[in-house]
């Protein structure tokens, strides 16, 4: 590694950051393109040939159409706006909560094509044709989703900041697995932080919505 030429080159480039030559030598790798081969990805060449030209938009607003809770909403957004921001600020769907804004608490959970994701870490511009379901979209015909009803009956909400995210996680779990175990519920909510400590009631409520009798004092016995 102690190649004098490399060292001098690095110091000559100090601060510019983008020059790569000294680094490449240091890392002991032949420059990109030195070893040419074909990709191991099947069918890539054909797919590539058919690709449409890319779009560049922004930094100002661009109009997009989002599919939200069964409706189509046209909204002008900046590329930097997260889905959470667009839902809350542009569309006034404030049921979705932002707590950490970093992907670390899952309060902002929404479904994209039925898959729970953090809306604070999703750019709205990237949602495309995927169907967005928010907490506002769970109730059908004025009737709460069974998980929501169970949350009410079991007092699974205190301050309520984590609750929309919890409900979205638990309702999604029941969609994938109508008869979950306690451990499945814990896994499904393992990214949902609740400051108030509703977890035991969230477990009770979710299992109740699945028709499974369970009380928080049984945690040990039910451990899977």
């Amino acid at each position: 590694m102690k190649d004098p030429e490399e060292n001098s080159e690095q110091s000559a480039n100090a601060g510019r950051g983008l020059s790569r030559r000294g680094f490449l030598k240091g890392a002991g790798i032949t420059a990109a393109g030195g070893v040419l081969m074909t990709s191991g990805i099947a069918g890539l060449a054909d797919a590539e040939a058919a690709a449409p030209a890319p779009d560049t938009v922004g930094p100002g607003r661009t109009s997009v159409t989002l599919k939200i809770n069964g409706d189509k909403k046209k909204v002008a957004i900046e590329p930097r706006q997260t889905l959470a921001e667009v839902l809350r600020i542009e569309l006034n769907l404030t049921g979705t909560k932002v707590v950490c804004d970093r992907g670390a608490c899952s309060a902002c959970t929404v479904w994209l094509d039925n898959t729970p994701v953090n809306s604070c870490m999703t750019l709205a511009i990237e949602v495309g044709k995927r169907e967005i379901t928010t907490i506002e979209g769970l109730a059908k015909n004025g009737k709460l989703h069974p998980v929501q009803e169970a949350f009410v009956a079991h007092d699974a909400s205190m301050c309520g900041f984590c609750t929309p995210g919890m409900v979205m996680s638990c309702a999604s779990l029941l969609q994938r697995n109508p008869k979950p175990t306690l451990d499945d519920v814990k896994t499904a909510t393992s990214g949902n932080l609740c400051r108030c400590g509703t977890y035991p009631k969230v477990f009770e409520a979710t299992l109740a919505a699945a028709g499974i009798a369970y009380s928080q004092t049984q945690a040990q016995a039910a451990k899977g």
Partner: peptide, 24 residues
């Protein structure tokens, strides 16, 4: 910060966008 957004549709296009590694 505000930024421009390019939605790449092929590897060939993506690798032709004059990108910098995030580290740089």
């Amino acid at each position: 910060n505000a930024f421009q957004w390019t939605d790449a549709t092929s590897v060939k296009q993506a690798t032709g966008q004059n990108t910098t590694p995030v580290a740089d």
